[in-house]
Amino acid sequence: MFKKNMIRALFFAIAILLVGTFLDPYNQSQLSVALIIFIAVLSITLLTGASGQISLGQGALMAVGGYASALTILNFNLNLWLAIPIAVLVSALAGLLLGVTAARLSGPYLAGTTLVIALAIPSLANRFESVFAGEIGFSVDFGSSPAWLNKVIGDVPVEKWQLIVTVIFATIALFFALNILNTRTGRSWRALRDHDIAASLQGVNVGRSRIFIFMVTSAFAGMAGALYGLRGIVSPSVYAVSLSLSLLTAAILGGIRNISGAMIGSIIIVFLPDWIGAVTSRLSVPTRISDYLPALITGLLLVATVVLSPGGLSGSIHHKKHK
């Protein structure tokens, strides 16, 4: 199982890199964003899809990861290969704290509380301006590709370097997610989702499992948040509530129950505005409509998905195959 997941993850990495070579720089960087979103959406897929908990606060955990990596990079002069693991650790800790408070909440209570957290955490940057630099935030970047890599495959432009870095982390995230879902842990999480009382009778420690789930999924969100910030700026507006909501939308659209759904959803959420833009510019739609069209369509898709096919896109494909 372990080996199979390794092969799957590597296959994923190669496929993305291959696709990436055929794209122009703009779409390469869009693909990187999709991969970052994918990592964050994985945190929701694992949390909601596997354990039945809903969090609207994943954007806040991304912010934790983003600030942790930015502060490490700027204060200690570390490169991103060290800064990101540190960010992952810090956000796992934040997830632990969140889990301790949220373990006893569920459903709408948890949704509301995490939504409050999504709003409150970024505002801390203004509250403690001396540490977190307020609205202005920090500017960080992916740096440039190391000299040896340039020697091997020729000059690597910024966009491509960004893609390479995100592919590496997305692959790691994917590998862990696959392992979590297919192991005993994953099964006990799902037991928790479907019948928490039965799960507790079978020896699953419900409270502790919930906290653990929060911790693990926060680590994913933190990784995504660090990468998201490296695109340029780490500031409260980068990690706004709308980010949390986009993540949830991506997770639901693609299909909350499996990992391929997370990828499909992330691609839709990142590229949809571009696709809509391509169509509307040809049809000369007035800007006041085209500006809000992506939001309208995502909202519509989200409602339609939960009403018509709660399993999401990947869920409905899966469903048909088995009929």
């Binding site: 949830l248 909202g299 009403v307």
Partner: peptide, 9 residues
């Protein structure tokens, strides 16, 4: 909850 967020959007 998710549906209501979609409606909000």
């Amino acid at each position: 909850v998710i549906a209501s967020l979609g409606i909000l959007g």
